[in-house]
């Protein structure tokens, strides 16, 4: 056996390994993909079924006829547009406030060297570990005394003071920018506020976009806070309204699936429109501080 054939054997086996690997990876991907896709298929197909095909064995895979009217019925059954308006009434200001206030605070935690900064920052980091339940009861009492129950204020007002997680995220981003940017500006006599607003803010756009996106989706999905604070039906956001509908009309599965689809579609569209920001944002959350 010459050296030559040996290496060619090795090359061949390596190639075979490579092929096996690609096939295996593809197979696994398809298998997992199938499992992930099944509930989506079930969501859509159920949402288009006439009522008498829901409870049938064997299962009806493709509804006959396709009931587009389920969607029309769903938005009437659940006051969908009222709930949508409510959700936006909460999510839009909450998103704007969180983004602005968090970036403001993040600037103070990253671009100014002040005594005690790191200690205070540690406090901020540790608040992320605090379960919501610890502050839930006293906050309810505070908002009750303010007369804010059954309004959106308990959900929106706290966002004026920045979110710990987003402050952290923007701070990480700001730390990665070179310091001389603002040193130069300071020498020129710029005020900190102007440095923040005119120099730093534009540079942090990617982090701000991520913050805005994640906050918006967070508030779109938020369930516990409205569950605690909102009492009357016509003030419910979508998440609460959908749950309520499910509880009342338990087994109207076709309409429930139609409503769930309608609640999901805007987020999916948002996801596709901003995929890059989105994925980067999620990935950023994993970067160690």
């Amino acid at each position: 056996m010459t050296l030559n054939t040996l290496s060619s054997n090795r090359w061949r086996s390596k190639r075979r390994q490579e092929i096996v690997r690609v096939v295996l990876v593809t197979l696994l991907r398809v298998a997992l993909g199938f499992m992930v896709a099944v509930p989506f298929f079930w969501l859509v197909t159920t949402s288009l079924k006439p009522e008498n095909q829901l409870f049938r064995v064997p299962v009806v895979w493709i509804p006959q006829p396709i009931m587009w009217s389920n969607y029309v019925r769903a938005v009437q059954y659940i006051p969908f547009f009222t709930y949508l308006k409510n959700t936006l009434t909460i999510a839009v200001p909450a998103t704007v406030f969180t983004t602005v206030s968090s970036s403001f605070v993040a600037y103070g935690f990253s671009r100014i060297q002040w005594p005690g900064r790191d200690a205070v920052f540690m406090v901020l980091i540790s608040t992320m570990m605090l379960p919501y339940q610890v502050t839930m009861v006293p906050l309810f009492v505070v908002f009750k005394n303010l007369g804010w129950i059954d309004t959106y204020r308990p959900l929106v007002v706290p966002t004026l003071f920045g979110g710990a997680f987003y402050i952290f995220l923007i701070r990480q981003f700001l730390m990665s920018l070179p310091m001389d940017l603002q040193d130069a500006a300071r020498i020129d006599g710029c005020s900190e506020l102007r440095i923040y607003a005119q120099i730093m803010l534009p540079l942090t756009k990617p982090a701000l976009a991520t913050t805005a996106l994640l906050t918006f989706i967070g508030y779109w999905n938020e369930f516990l806070m409205p569950l605690i604070y909102i009492n009357t039906n016509d003030k419910f956001p979508l998440a609460l309204g959908l749950q309520q509908f499910q509880r009342q009309y338990g087994a109207e599965w076709a309409l429930l699936m139609a409503a769930s689809t309608l609640m999901t579609i805007p987020i999916i569209i948002l996801f596709f429109a901003t995929q890059k920001t989105f994925i980067r944002g999620i990935a950023l959350t994993g970067i160690k501080g």
Binding site: E51, F55, Q248, Y249, G250, A251, E252
Partner: peptide
């Protein structure tokens, strides 16, 4: 597996 209480189901 039962249908909606408030319906023909």
């Amino acid at each position: 597996g039962l249908g909606n209480y408030w319906s023909p189901q």
